[in-house]
């Protein structure tokens, strides 16, 4: 059992190191490490985990790691695989943050980050387009999008409120639409 958990931890640490950016970037790496090399899950299962990981709370990479880990080695496996996937981030970012803080006052560093911020805007914009593509099933979805966008720009309340309200709205809208069909 210990050996199983150890293998899980290192495999997912490896997956963590090789993932750059969003969780989507992780899929081909998971396919190679988990499906082809280790045989812990099938391609189909992995796609399922990914789909569920995308629509359940939390970071997709973490959710998928928990899924694969628990399938291979139960609850302990789920926890260990998840710790493995976040381990490289902890080490790398902690080391890097120190360096960045030390040089943050230099003029050229500030110019560099001002340029980077512009790039971040564009990257977020592209991410939103991707999210929108997957989210808009009909006009009602655009309605929810518009309302939440305006509300989050105008008033200052916790995002949790919007998440709960939108979930409820989804249930109500689907129920009403279901009744209309009959």
């Amino acid at each position: 059992m210990m050996k199983k958990l150890w293998t899980l931890f290192w495999t997912f640490a490896k997956v963590g190191v090789m993932t750059f950016g969003g969780g989507y970037a992780m899929l081909p790496i998971l396919q190679r490490e988990v499906v082809e090399k280790k045989g812990w899950a099938t391609d189909e299962e992995l796609t399922d985990y990914f789909a569920i990981g995308q629509c359940t709370p939390g970071v997709i990479a973490v959710n998928t790691a928990t899924f694969v880990g628990q399938k291979y080695a139960g609850i302990a496996g789920g926890i260990v695989a998840t710790l493995g996937v976040v381990f490289p981030s902890l080490v790398i970012i902690s080391a890097l943050a120190k360096v960045i803080t030390a040089y943050a006052h230099l003029a050229w560093v500030q110019h560099a980050f001002a340029g980077i911020r512009v790039c971040v805007c564009v990257l977020i914009f592209n991410a939103v387009l991707k999210l929108v593509k997957g989210a808009m099933k009909d006009a009602w979805c655009w309605g929810i999008f518009g309302v939440i966008l305006v509300l989050s720009l105008v008033i200052d309340v916790s995002p949790i409120l919007y998440v709960v309200a939108a979930g409820l709205a989804g249930v109500v809208l689907q129920a009403v639409k279901g009744r209309e069909k009959k």
Binding site: C55, C141, F145, A166, G167, V171
Partner: peptide
């Protein structure tokens, strides 16, 4: 499925709002 039908557009909208702040 109904919950996520409502949640996904909301999530996209909140990320968009954050993007506008950036």
């Amino acid at each position: 499925q109904s919950v996520f039908y409502g949640l996904r557009p909301a999530s996209a909208a909140m990320v968009a709002a954050a993007g506008l702040s950036v």
